[in-house]
């Protein structure tokens, strides 16, 4: 006879199964690898530029998990040792978080031969626990029909914007954008500050606040504001802007400002406890010159393999890594909570 006790017993067993680490986990089989990708054209490039080469070399299947680095990092942290992902395409600070928690494996040339052709600047920030397969640099986009004389330096940009020269038509990254703290640090450094002295950045931001249309929270949001001409000038990554320009936005132009541009990296990492054999192969594919060139042509984010042969007409779109600047990621992680508090009181308050 079916009683309440039977039902509750079964119910409890179900809960226990669900709660048990790995209890509901479906592990990837030996000949497949689970990797990550952003959506849209990024996913298209992963599927069309990278996966065919990977399959050709390994004969293995690839499962793509769409999302964003925050989600993937949380998934890896939730199940240490039995991760639902084998390789992850991460942001810089989240990559450091995984490294510091011991959740990713070190890359080496014997396991990832293409690592030998990746300049140290794309590997050293992650102590070889990740290697960037692409990079992008910051600068200003502007409506060239309206702004005939673009600023040449960050200081000039903030000074002219703060005086209202561009009108209320400016947009900058919000603190809520995953790379928002990177930009604040960079504004400060470009105008004489440092990680411990962010005053130049916050002073400049307060001055231009009345002329802001909006601080943008996602790259898609700023792209929409640019294309609908709600903003005339602002800060964005080069690859995003050049993609819009080559896509038909004739009014748009991009300029990198002195003294330097902020560089963003995308470290590919092998997750400990996953299918590490194929994950290394996948990272090797991400670092391969052939798909990296295809990726660059499609996405406009610069390749990192030194053997990539950039067509002459596209060389001007790429800034050498040596001309850019990156923060000390651990220092940035340490400084970010205070940065958020200051933003909330001084910019939003």
């Amino acid at each position: 006879m079916l009683t309440r006790r039977h039902v509750l017993g079964g119910f409890g067993a179900g809960l226990a199964t669900a709660a048990w680490p790995g209890g509901m986990l479906v592990r990837a089989d030996e000949n497949s690898v689970t990797i990550t990708s952003l959506g849209g054209k990024w996913e298209q490039s992963i599927r069309e530029d990278f996966i065919p080469l990977f399959k050709q070399r390994t004969g293995a299947e690839v499962k793509v998990v769409l999302g964003a680095p925050t989600q993937w990092t949380a998934q890896i942290e939730a199940l240490p040792g039995k991760p639902p992902l084998d390789a992850v395409d991460n942001s810089e600070t989240l990559a450091i978080a995984l490294i510091d928690k011991g959740l990713v494996s070190k890359l080496s040339v014997d396991k990832v031969p293409n690592l030998a052709d990746i300049p140290l600047g794309f590997r050293q920030p992650f102590d070889d626990f990740g290697a960037s397969y692409q990079y992008s640099t910051s600068g200003i986009f502007f409506n060239a029909d309206k702004i005939k004389s673009a600023p040449k330096s960050w200081a000039e940009f903030f000074e002219r914007a703060g005086k209202g020269e561009f009108g209320r038509s400016i947009t900058l990254p919000d603190i809520g954008y995953a790379w928002g703290p990177f930009f604040i640090w960079h504004y400060a450094v470009a105008m004489g500050g440092s990680m411990d002295n962010l005053d130049p950045a916050f002073d400049a931001l307060r001055k231009i606040k009345p002329y802001m249309v909006k601080f943008w929270g996602t790259a898609l949001e700023v792209e929409r504001m640019i294309m609908s001409k709600e903003v005339d000038i602002g800060v964005l990554w080069d690859g995003r802007v050049t993609a819009m320009m080559s896509g038909g936005a004739k009014f748009l132009d991009f300029k990198r400002l002195a003294p330097h541009s902020l560089v963003t990296l995308s470290p590919a990492q092998v997750v400990k406890g996953g299918n590490e054999r194929l994950a290394y192969e996948w990272v090797n594919t991400l670092l391969d010159p052939e798909p990296q060139l295809k990726y660059f042509k499609r996405i406009n984010f610069a390749p990192t393999n030194s053997k990539v042969q950039i067509p002459d007409e596209l060389k001007a779109n790429i800034m050498p890594l040596s001309e850019g600047i990156t923060p000390d990621y651990r220092e940035l992680i340490r400084a970010t909570p205070k940065m958020v508090e200051r933003w909330n009181s001084e910019i939003r308050g």
């Binding site: 964003a68 925050t70 919000d174 809520g176 601080f215």
Partner: peptide, 25 residues
């Protein structure tokens, strides 16, 4: 609220998102 709001119109869900994605708190 994220897309239609501005810098002075944050809400709890937006703050939650920021604490996770930016502050990692």
């Amino acid at each position: 609220p994220l897309l239609l709001g501005g810098q002075s119109s944050s809400t709890i869900p937006i703050s939650i998102w920021e604490q996770i994605t930016v502050s990692s708190d």
